[in-house]
């Protein structure tokens, strides 16, 4: 039995000259671009210079440094809204207000180590100072809150142990018998 060849073999064997010429008036498939998908337009990408990367690093460092400033207003509102009574939530929130800045202050060097370099070291100092200032500001809010709760020993009555009973200058004794 003579086997008919598979269609793909016939496609491969047909000589180029016997194929029809491509007509010009045929619609292209949707999304096809004539500029050719195989030749991708290659944009020359120049690597950034050292100065540019340094600038970028400082910019990023500022972003990190100013992040606490964003949470300041929220902290203030939260502290203002939560009551001044002594209860678990207000105590926890106030404690957080002290804990987080203290932890951040203890690891300032770590936070900025990835931006640190020979060229950026000097400029990084102001950034660090701003960061520290903002953390201290957060602690100030905490102090204000503690004060509002009446926990700061700012009134005289808080130091009663050291109060002396006043020595009377004169005593009067009733004399009606």
């Amino acid at each position: 039995m003579a086997l008919s060849q598979p269609a793909w073999v016939i496609d491969l064997k047909t000589s180029p000259s016997s194929r029809p010429k491509a007509p010009s008036n045929v619609a292209d498939p949707p999304g096809y671009s004539t500029s050719g998908s195989s030749k991708k337009s290659q944009k020359q990408i120049t690597p950034p210079t050292q100065a540019e990367t340094d600038d970028l690093k400082i910019k990023k460092a500022w972003e990190v440094a100013l992040a606490p400033a964003k949470s300041l207003p929220m902290n203030m509102i939260m502290m203002y809204m939560s009551g001044n009574t002594l209860q678990i939530f207000s105590i926890m929130m106030t404690a957080m207000l002290f804990m987080n800045p203290l932890r951040a202050l203890s690891s300032v060097g770590n936070t900025f180590s990835k931006f640190d370099g020979e060229a950026t070291h000097g400029r990084l100092l102001t950034v660090k100072l701003a960061y520290i200032g903002l953390q201290i500001l957060t602690i100030v809010i905490g102090i204000w809150k503690v004060n509002a709760m009446g926990l700061l020993p700012t009134t005289r009555s808080d130091w009663l142990a050291w109060e002396h009973a006043p020595v009377p200058l004169e005593t009067s004794i009733s004399n009606f018998r």
Binding site: A22, V26, D28, Y32, G36, S37
Partner: peptide
């Protein structure tokens, strides 16, 4: 497309 020798279009499809 292949049948009318429009190969880039056929490849795209």
């Amino acid at each position: 497309y292949f049948e009318i020798s429009m190969y880039p279009q056929a490849i795209y499809c």
